[in-house]
Deep mutational scan, measured.
Amino acid sequence: NQASVVANQLIPIQTALTLVMMRSEVVTPVGIPAEDIPRLVSMQVNRAVPLGTTLMPDMVKGYA
């Protein structure tokens, strides 16, 4: 099973992502693949992302 990127904390809207905000976890449905974590650093979320939420491509500006 492929690991996805999951929020390690509440990430407020417009926040630039850092490594400490994300973790990898095998979840359903599958979100952004964990191997993309380095690419996500400094990208902004376009909505508030609660703790434990799987990051989906449409939540990160410039990802999809």
Rank of each mutant, 00 (worst) to 15 (best):
N1M: 15
N1I: 13
N1L: 14
N1D: 12
Q2D: 09
A3N: 07
A3M: 11
A3D: 05
A3E: 10
S4W: 03
S4F: 03
V6N: 01
V6P: 01
V6F: 02
A7C: 04
A7R: 01
A7Q: 02
A7P: 01
N8R: 10
N8Y: 04
Q9E: 14
Q9V: 11
Q9Y: 07
L10E: 11
L10N: 14
I11H: 01
I11Y: 02
P12K: 07
Q14M: 11
Q14Y: 14
Q14W: 15
L17C: 04
T18L: 08
T18Q: 10
L19W: 11
L19Q: 09
M21D: 04
M21A: 04
M21I: 03
M22N: 02
M22Y: 02
R23P: 02
R23V: 07
R23T: 08
S24M: 11
S24H: 08
V26S: 08
V26F: 07
V26W: 09
V27T: 12
V27H: 03
T28H: 14
T28W: 14
T28C: 08
P29V: 05
P29N: 05
P29S: 04
P29I: 05
V30E: 11
G31V: 00
G31S: 00
I32C: 04
I32H: 00
I32R: 02
P33I: 06
A34H: 06
A34R: 05
A34N: 05
A34V: 08
E35S: 15
D36K: 11
D36E: 13
P38E: 12
P38K: 13
R39D: 07
R39L: 10
L40N: 01
V41P: 02
Q44D: 04
Q44K: 13
V45L: 10
V45C: 06
V45Q: 00
N46V: 11
R47L: 07
R47Q: 12
A48N: 15
A48G: 07
V49P: 03
L51M: 13
L51T: 12
L51I: 13
G52D: 07
G52S: 05
T53I: 07
T53H: 09
T53N: 14
T53P: 00
T54Y: 02
L55D: 01
L55R: 00
L55K: 01
M56T: 12
M56C: 06
P57A: 10
P57R: 07
D58T: 09
M59V: 06
M59L: 05
M59P: 00
M59F: 10
M59G: 03
V60S: 02
V60E: 00
K61S: 13
K61F: 12
K61Y: 15
G62F: 08
G62C: 07
Y63V: 04
A64M: 15
